[in-house]
Amino acid sequence: MASAVTNKWRGIAGKCLVFGLALLPLGFLVADIINANLGPDPGQVITEALGIAAFQLLLVTLAITPLKKVTGWSGWLRYRRMLGLFAFFYAALHLLAFLQLILGWMDLWATFTKRPYIIAGAAAFLAMVPLAITSTRRMMKRTGRWWKPLHRLIYPAAILAWVHFLWQARSDITEMVVYAVILAGLLVVRARWFGVSSLVPLKRT
């Protein structure tokens, strides 16, 4: 009994900690805005920082299952939904910042139809929308056995986000290479552990 209570509190404390950590990038940005610490092109800095935070959280979300496998502790799963929702939260802020701070809501049609890196980013975001919508317990029940294959959309979302990042590179791609290694690692371990077949939606039985 006592240990169950302790576990419950531990779980809550853990969630608070993860919640706080996930808010840090936003906190730093707000502090920089208040202190006018973002240089002559603050819109660009804000937009980039939000995008990077979204991508990093997407990678952390993807790391949960491998972490569980490696450590044998299934407690990691508790934080997966929150991390995924934070990734979506930052992606949504990133998109809003791009529209307001960079574009100023101008030239929308050309931007979203003619610029490949924007299209890749928009596709990554669109892939995350159904995941966020179906993240609640109730939606999990309603989607039933389709929930799992649907949520494999996180793989194309992460890859598209990386492509979105790569296609903005002008000369030095060191950062992109580092992220590629991490992302490839996270995808490859899945293929190995679950067999490549588990990367495609389950068949109806």
């Binding site: 973002l38 092109d41 819109g43 701070l101 960079i102 574009l103 030239d107």
Partner: peptide, 14 residues
Amino acid sequence: MERRLPSGVFRPNW
């Protein structure tokens, strides 16, 4: 178009 810098935080200076 171009963004003339320095730009304000919330409004791009196109």
